[in-house]
């Protein structure tokens, strides 16, 4: 029954560009991109309890690395471009994660918030590479002789990469590394007493989280086709946090659902730009009050009761 449902879902996802208008294909691509970020952020915040309000910064690093690589080295296959975007962002994550080892809670949130601003400033100042405020038009991703220019082609790229990233995250969460991260969240002293190297795993969480966000940033650059610094402001970081709170901290399915909910809300509320922060704020407060475990734990309860 579960496998049948998953199979049917997979078929729908594969046929999606044939079923819906191009705009919805684009929107679905954005959902998958955001889901990859949400999973990365959740590994850091939900699993390891290190709060980040700077993931728009990682997202921007990934987007710009992918865009600049595509412009400067057009022959590079898109898979390599995305891997390099992820690795470069992971290095930035390491560089941020190591000094942040001494920080907790609000102080860590402040440091990551500042990191987000630093990235935007850096993009503005490196204008010989990034063209500053003018932004970069991103050419179509290339896969051998194929140019992935249409919304459908981009969608399949995003879906393929997204599926790999989700599978990897599920595997990490279910094995030794994921348990070590959760142990740190639950009790640092008991984790240490069990042989978990706190500093190493906290830093690893930063690097993996940044890798996910960097790959997603690269995909975002291809999906949207144009990037500029103002797309990566602090409100984007808050949106990412909203995704994992609404979806469920410490849950990978929750990350995906949360990303879908926030991305769709964003789209529906496009006409009410000015009220967006107000509505998002209300949704977050409502979530924390009435659904502290997010949609994921609510769904777990329902399926539990149904049995």
């Amino acid at each position: 029954m579960r496998w049948a449902a998953a199979g049917a879902g997979g078929v729908v996802l594969l046929c999606w560009p044939l079923l819906v208008p191009p705009y919805f294909v684009f929107l679905t691509s954005l959902i998958v991109v955001n889901a990859i970020v949400a999973i990365g952020l959740n590994l850091l915040s939900g699993y390891t309890n290190q709060l980040s309000f700077g993931h728009a910064g990682f997202f921007a690093v990934g987007a710009y690395v992918a865009a600049v690589l595509t412009l400067r080295a057009p022959a590079l296959p898109v898979v390599a471009t995305l891997a390099l975007a992820g690795l470069a962002t992971a290095l930035v994550g390491l560089a941020l994660g190591i000094p942040c080892l001494r920080l907790e809670g609000l102080y860590l949130a402040m440091a990551t918030l500042a990191f987000g601003f630093v990235v935007v400033e850096a993009i503005l100042n490196l204008d010989w590479l990034t063209r500053g405020n003018d932004g970069l038009a991103v050419p179509a991703a290339r896969l051998g002789p194929l140019a992935l220019g249409s919304d459908a082609a981009k969608y399949y790229l995003v879906l393929g990469v997204g599926a790999l990233m989700v599978a990897a995250a599920v595997n990490i969460a279910r094995t030794r590394t994921g348990r070590a991260l959760l142990a740190i969240r639950e009790s640092e002293i008991a984790a240490q007493a069990s042989g978990v190297h706190l500093a190493a795993y906290k830093t690893l969480a930063f690097a993996v989280s940044a890798f996910y966000t960097g790959v997603a940033g690269g995909l975002f650059a291809f999906v949207v086709g144009f990037i500029s610094p103002d797309a990566f402001d602090v409100f984007l970081s808050v949106d990412f946090v909203a995704m994992i709170i609404v979806g469920g901290l410490g849950s990978i399915p929750g990350s995906i659902v949360g990303a879908a909910v926030i991305t769709l809300l964003y789209d529906w509320l496009a006409a009410f730009q000015n009220y967006r922060p107000l509505l998002f704020g209300l949704i977050l407060i409502g979530c924390m009050l009435f659904m502290p475990g997010g949609i994921a734990s609510r769904m777990a309860k329902w399926t539990h009761q149904a049995q």
Binding site: I172, T175, R176, T177, R179, A180, L182, A183, E186, S187, I189, A190, A191, A193, S194, G195, V196, L204, V208, G250
Partner: peptide, 24 residues
């Protein structure tokens, strides 16, 4: 200092952390 939100089985598995080799 149990890992409160994890299952009893996961608690014991974390105790085994240093015995296992599978990394990231």
């Amino acid at each position: 200092e149990v890992f409160r939100q994890l299952t009893a089985l996961d608690n014991v598995l974390i105790g085994r952390h240093a015995q296992l080799r599978g990394g990231l």
